Amino acid sequence: MSGSTLEIDDLHKRYGETVALDGVGFTVNPGEVFGFVGSNGAGKTTTMRITLGVLGADSGEARLNGRPIDLNVRRTIGYMPEERGLYPKMKVGAQLKYLAELHGLSTADASAAVATWTERLGIDGRVNDTVDSLSLGNQQRVQLAAALIHDPAVLVLDEPFSGLDPVAVDTMSEVLLEKARTGVPVLFSSHQLDLVQRLCDRVGIIGSGRMKAVGTVDALRGKSGTTLEVHAPAAPAGWADALTGVTTVSHSDGRTSLSLAPEADDQAVLAAALATGPVHEFARSTPSLTDLYREVVA
């Protein structure tokens, strides 16, 4: 599978005394869905705006296939801003056709692209309606169509799922995964961490303008260790404290919550629990992306 590679390289940005970005860097590979998560003000939108050339970086740069992102390269990017950039009084079909032609499509190709994407996103019946007459969910669909209308080489989407109903979330998710399967790198930010965990190949967590963690969800969760919930009614307090890589988080009424480092042996824990008497529950769990996010940002 061929495709483009988006590189964000050591971005720095200040607004007076405020540090917005402090060495932000990561890569989105061909066909990869990359989730960019962080709290409000962490630096997500600033990073995306620099990537698109809307803002200038104090240092560092964004590159697509090794080329700095200039005007010609920007034409190949599909961008969905958090502050939606549609003309509210313009009809949906005319607006999408206009945007397609701005990206260099012929009139015939632009019309074909409008028909394709409005049908795919379920808004083909609204092409003659003005944007401001649409629901928020349908406005989001139009905005996504605007990002896709020119068959972009890369997608950069800032909070694309904000305010969508479950059906619209499913539709948008399917489209992003379809584009990724063609080799398009997809970068999107979202506060819906369960959705990020489900869709993304890799995740970048940003806080206070710095990358706190980058990697696959499974790898990041694995670094955080796992938790064991053990119900051994006869087990005394501290029964697992001598085991390698095991830390007791809580113990009450025979129920013990244990934190396991990567080197810990859960079978040794089970043996130690059985040595105290019957074991009614022995359940291993890995922290969710939401748990990991809280840990990393804190």
Rank of each mutant, 00 (worst) to 15 (best):
L260R: 01
L228S: 01
T5M: 11
N65W: 05
V279T: 03
D253Q: 13
D10K: 14
E295T: 13
R75L: 15
A57G: 00
I69Y: 03
N65V: 05
E229K: 11
V230Y: 01
V279S: 01
A145V: 00
R14W: 08
H103Q: 14
V214L: 12
H280I: 14
T5S: 07
P287A: 07
D241C: 07
V24A: 05
G25C: 05
D132G: 04
V28E: 03
G254N: 08
T47M: 07
G183I: 07
A180K: 02
V217N: 03
V214M: 10
L52E: 11
G204A: 12
T107D: 12
L102P: 08
K89R: 14
I50R: 04
G277Q: 02
G225H: 04
R294D: 13
E119L: 08
L102C: 12
S285D: 13
G104D: 10
L71C: 13
H231S: 11
D132E: 14
P262L: 09
D170Y: 12
L187W: 07
S257Q: 13
V142Q: 03
T18S: 15
R84E: 06
M211E: 05
A272I: 04
L96E: 03
A237I: 13
A112Q: 12
A108D: 12
R221C: 10
P185W: 00
S189G: 10
G38Y: 03
H103C: 10
E32A: 05
Q140N: 13
S111F: 01
L6G: 03
V54F: 12
E281W: 07
A20C: 00
D109V: 09
D170H: 15
K44D: 06
E101C: 06
L270H: 10
A268R: 10
E229G: 11
V217Y: 04
R120G: 03
P81C: 10
D170G: 14
N72R: 15
D132C: 07
T47P: 03
P160F: 04
A146F: 04
G125E: 09
L270F: 15
D201C: 06
Q95H: 10
D129W: 09
G204M: 02
P81M: 13
P68V: 11
A298E: 12
R49N: 12
V175I: 10
K223L: 14
Q192P: 12
A110L: 01
L136K: 15
Y15N: 08
I206H: 03
E174Q: 15
V186L: 01
R74T: 09
I123T: 04
G3S: 06
L136M: 14
E7I: 05
S224F: 09
V37N: 04
G93R: 02
P185I: 00
T171W: 06
T5K: 08
L64G: 00
Q140Y: 08
E61N: 15
T286F: 08
F26C: 02
S106C: 06
L96D: 02
G43S: 02
R294M: 15
S208F: 11
Q267A: 13
G38C: 05
V230L: 05
S135E: 04
S162Y: 08
S224A: 14
D253M: 11
T182F: 12
